[in-house]
Design a protein around this nucleic acid. Structure first.
Lengths: 337, 337
DNA sequence: CCAGTCAATGCACAGCCGTGCAACAGAATA
DNA sequence: TATTCTGTTGCACGGCTGTGCATTGACTGG
């Protein structure tokens, strides 16, 4: 017996009590709070008055039980304090609230095993939908979700699973464009700063950049110093710039990596950007626009993605399939024009 | 009739079906998934096998309905993509998941009216607790929450309401300390960079700094250029540093303000920090530790706060009351030693 | 005055689960 | 062998809501 047995059992007031006070049937109360139900203005007012007096609030758990829809949308995410993820979270919660949904955040804290557990929670709460921002759940579990009538939306994850909606951004196009931008700036020694995380978007950007450079006849040094973050970017700079032939054009697969790279390049090697070395990032996080960085990067269309997720949830058709969002280059001052 | 009438009605499998397949009563299924219930190992295994085969998941909505506890904790927050808020969110979600709770995020998007709506959602979902990070809900609504057996936790909000738990950080002590640090660094023309948001913590820091300075016989210029963020910090720098008598010691009530201030001071006025001007921030967001800033600031004990919230939720006693968390100075390199 | 229409209302059921209570089986004890 | 005890199981109820169906009452048109 681990905890206390007797919870206060604070009888929260139910529709029944409101009906009593208002002198109507419980159905009338239910209809008053149900969009589009038939209630006369008179009883409606009586019910609302009684509800206000008692502090009644519809029990969405019970409603969800009978309607088979809880109104909950789960967001599975790792590293959620990172700038890009938190901006994404903000946009999605805001937009989903506008269409009457509410967001449940499941923080996997970087443990892949937690992704499975999180997806189970999603089922436990009978969520209307699940948005997987990080991690790769097993195909079988995704299938279970879909079987239970749940929408599953995978962000930037091109697994060949049938069923879930997939939202992709133009990683490859952007990486190719980044390569051309650096070459046009007369860079000849190219490098890409990536991470050891191995997430699909990181890998896609890295590979596409290397491929594009090789197609143009340039070799590329790849550096992966650690997880996707500021410190790894700085470490990559220390590695790459200490070498005998230092790069003069660098594509960082993430703004955070780019910023770490720039800081170390300036502080530890006294380099000027973009004179000595050009840098391109990815995401367009707020920090990229700060005066000290002015980072040329690619903007992820966060609001458009949030809008699209909302559209999926309000639409009745299942399986819209795969949707691609192009990213947009944001010219600032870390690449010579 | 706004939407489709006939939802797929995908009959998600219930304990009943599992019982059928396993050849036991539904109670046995329920007990298998209930901590501490009495089931023999044999039936337990039968049930688990059947559940696995059918893809059964306990319906936490129904469980919450009967137990009067949903396992949901609501977090009401504005400006959630800001570094400090998102770090806080990360810590709280992580810790609460460890104790078996799940976090529902309600984004008020800065609209004060949304705070009330969010608190209503909290009641609708019969949340176990609500953590109010931003905004000031009305006392009456808070009372309703508590009447319904919900825990209410106010962060950095010292309203004289009876009932909710209150978590405070040592704003005043830190502001006083900041003042002394600047004076010890031989600063004589003090300024404080604040914002027009007027949130309790911002106001408290601002006032305490001014009071401490006046107690030492120094006047303070106060600048409030806009909302609490990078741009306002930069604007404040442009205002303060263009004046005839420019300050040489600045306390920014937020790291983001401090970083904006530093960037503008360096770029637009070619000032060196800390030689020409000392800067102190507040929060110790990750960006404060970046090589380009090395901001001396005060660390908010995010993990300790998350831990304390978890403790409140696992404890049975109500009304632990008000808890103060001291902040810790983080010496870096924006103040002369 | 009567038939017909229609909005409003109440009843009863379904949705899924935890748990008190009683029944029961098996083991341990006298 | 009779009795007590202990652990397991099933029944039935309660928790709160939405909604189909039948009923009611008022109102309209002839």
């Amino acid at each position: 017996m681990p905890k206390s047995k007797q919870k206060p059992h604070k009888a929260s007031i139910s529709a029944h009590k409101v009906a009593e006070l208002a002198g109507v049937s419980r159905s009338a109360v239910s209809r008053t709070f149900t969009e589009g139900a038939s209630v006369s203005e008179a009883t409606r007012r009586k019910v609302l008055a009684a509800a206000e007096k008692l502090g009644y609030h519809v029990n969405l758990l019970a409603r969800g039980l009978i309607q088979h829809r809880s109104g909950i949308v789960c967001l599975i995410v790792a590293d959620m304090q990172a700038p890009y993820q938190s901006s994404f979270l903000e946009a999605v919660t805001r937009r989903l609230q506008e269409i009457g949904k509410v967001v449940m955040v499941l923080n996997t804290a970087g443990q892949p095993a937690n992704v499975e557990a999180a997806l189970r929670q999603t089922l436990n709460y009978r969520a209307d939908a699940t948005v997987v921002v990080s991690g790769s759940p097993s195909a079988s579990l995704i299938e279970t979700c879909i079987d239970n009538g749940q929408r599953v939306i995978l962000i930037n994850r091109d697994d060949p699973i049938i069923g879930p909606e997939r939202i992709m951004v133009g990683n490859e196009e952007a990486a190719r464009e980044a390569c051309l931008m650096l070459l046009r700036a007369a860079c000849t020694r190219l490098a890409v700063v990536s991470s050891t995380a191995g997430t699909p978007s990181v890998t896609a950007r890295e590979r596409a950049f290397v491929a594009a450079a090789e197609a143009e006849g340039f070799a590329v040094t790849v550096s992966r110093a650690g997880p996707t973050g500021y410190a790894s970017g700085a470490d990559s700079a220390r590695q790459l710039l200490a070498a005998s032939s230092r790069p003069d054009g660098v594509f960082c697969v993430t703004d955070l990596l780019a910023i770490g790279f720039m800081d170390a390049a300036r502080q530890d090697f006294r380099l000027s950007i973009p004179e000595d070395i050009c840098v391109i990032g990815f995401d367009d996080i707020p920090e990229a626009g700060w005066l000290g960085y002015n980072l040329t990067t690619f903007r992820q269309p966060i609001n458009e993605i949030a809008e699209y997720i909302a559209a999926i949830l309000t639409s009745d058709e299942a399986a819209l399939g795969k949707q691609n969002f192009p990213v947009q280059v944001v010219w600032r001052r870390t690449v010579r024009p």
